[in-house]
Design a protein around this nucleic acid. Structure first.
Lengths: 210, 210
DNA sequence: ATTTCAATCAGTATAAATACGGATGTTATT
DNA sequence: AATAACATCCGTATTTATACTGATTGAAAT
C-alpha cells in the first residue's frame, strides 16, 4: 500500500509544522514538503510528480490560495487541493468550491476529521461537511434579494440582451419598435446604476437577475 | 403545540395524495391544501396566512417550481419552500439553493428523512443532505474549466470592459491605442464564440473569467 | 530556423448603443 | 379620484462597437 503523498502550504510556520507532526502518526500519509506560499508550492509540484493532495491555506503572501486553486484547475494535474482556512464565511467556501477545492476544513477541525477527509479526497471524492455546505448554501441564497426593481418587460428585455440579441432583433421578437427596446434598455441601465450594457450584464448576473 | 401547516404542490395527483396520506401519521404536521401548480399555490397562500412550509415540485405546468421560488423570495413571506424533485442533477439543485429553497429532497427519499427535514426547516434552518450538497458542489466546480483560452492582456481588457469602461477609456488606461483594444475585444469575442459584448460578459461570468 | 502566437497599430464602412429631449394610454395603489 | 408606475412610442445627434482586410514586432515553441 503506497502512502498518500501530500504537501502543506501555509504561511504560518507553527501551523505548518504542527500539522506535519500531527500527520506523522498516520502510516498511510506522507508529508513530502512544507511550503509557505503558492510559488513554492508549484516549485515542489515540479519536483514531485506523484503528489496526491495539497493542504492549502487561503491567506498566503505572493500567490494566495484562490490563485493556487485556479492554477491547479487550469493545469491538468491530479493534485487534489483541500482548503484549510480560519474563515468560515460562505463566500470563501463558495469560491473555493467553484474553483475546484475537494474539501474545505476549518482550522479548528479535529484530527480525526482531517485524516478522514484526506482519505476520502485521496479516493477522488469531494467531501464538504454538512456545516460547511450549509454556510455556502446560505450565502448563495442571500446573494439575490432584488427581483422587484425591474418590471416584467424589463426583465424580459434584459434576458434577451444577455443572449446577445441586438435592439432591433429584440424589437422584432417582441413585436414592438426598436425605440421601445432602447427606452427599456436605458431605463434598466438607470435603475441598476451602471454605465453601459457590459457593466449591466455583469451587475445583473451578480444580483441574480439572469 | 401548534401543528406545522403545509401545502403540497405537485402536478401528479397520485404523488400529491400519497404524500398527503403519508403525512397524516404525524400529529405535528397538518396538510392544509393540495395544489397542482404555482398559480393555485399562491391562491391558497392568499387564503391561509399561516402556512409554514410548501413541499414543491419543480416540473409543473403554468408556473413551475423555479418561478415559485423566485416569487416567494421577492414577496416577504415566511413560507419556507422544500423542493421535492425527481431530478438529482447538480444544476437543478444549485438553482434551487440560489433561489431560496430551504431543502432539496429526491422523490425516492424515505419518510423518516422527509419528516425530519420538515421539522428542521420549520425551525427556520436550511437543510441539504450531504449527497445533495455534494452533487451541487461538483456541478459548481465543473462549471469552470477554461482559464487558458485568453491571454493575460485579453483577461485584463475583459476585466475593464466588464467594469463598464469604453474602448477609449481602456486604451488610455493601458497606454495603447484604441485600435489595440478593439482588436483585443474582437479576439475575445471570437474566442468565446459570442456575438457581442453583452453575450460576452454573460459567458465570461458563466465560465468564471470575471 | 521556422512556425506560431500575443500584442501592437491602421483604414473603411456599417451597425448599434447612448444621451438628450418629449408623448400617450393602461394599470396599480392609495 | 388622484397619483404613480409602467409599457409603449417618436426625433436628433453623438459616441461606440462591430466587420472586414491587413500589417509589424518579438517571444516562445518545435
Amino acid at each position: 500500500m503506497k502512502p498518500i503523498k501530500l504537501i502543506i502550504a501555509d504561511d504560518h510556520e507553527l501551523f505548518r509544522n504542527g500539522l506535519n507532526e500531527l500527520l506523522k502518526k498516520y502510516d498511510d500519509v506522507q508529508v513530502v514538503a512544507l511550503v509557505e506560499d503558492g510559488n513554492e508550492l508549484f516549485q515542489e509540484l515540479e519536483k514531485h510528480k506523484d503528489i496526491a493532495i495539497v493542504l492549502l491555506d487561503i491567506t498566503m503572501p505572493n500567490m494566495d490560495g484562490f490563485q493556487v486553486l485556479n492554477a491547479l484547475k487550469s493545469q491538468n494535474t491530479n493534485v487534489k487541493p483541500i482548503v484549510i482556512s480560519m474563515h468560515d464565511e460562505g463566500n470563501y467556501i463558495a469560491s473555493c468550491a467553484k474553483n475546484g477545492a475537494y474539501s474545505y476544513l476549518l482550522k479548528n477541525t479535529d484530527q480525526d476529521k482531517l485524516i478522514k477527509t484526506i482519505r476520502i479526497v485521496n479516493g477522488g471524492k469531494k467531501y464538504f461537511q454538512p456545516q460547511i455546505a450549509e454556510k455556502m448554501i446560505n450565502y448563495m441564497s442571500e446573494q439575490s434579494v432584488s427581483e422587484n426593481i425591474l418590471s416584467n418587460k424589463e426583465k424580459e428585455v434584459l434576458g434577451l440582451i444577455s443572449k446577445g440579441l441586438t435592439t432591433k432583433e429584440i424589437a422584432k421578437q417582441l413585436f414592438v419598435s426598436s425605440r421601445t427596446i432602447e427606452t427599456h434598455r436605458a431605463n434598466i441601465i438607470k435603475k441598476l446604476e451602471v454605465k453601459n450594457t457590459a457593466e449591466l450584464i455583469k451587475k445583473a448576473t451578480e444580483i441574480n437577475l439572469i
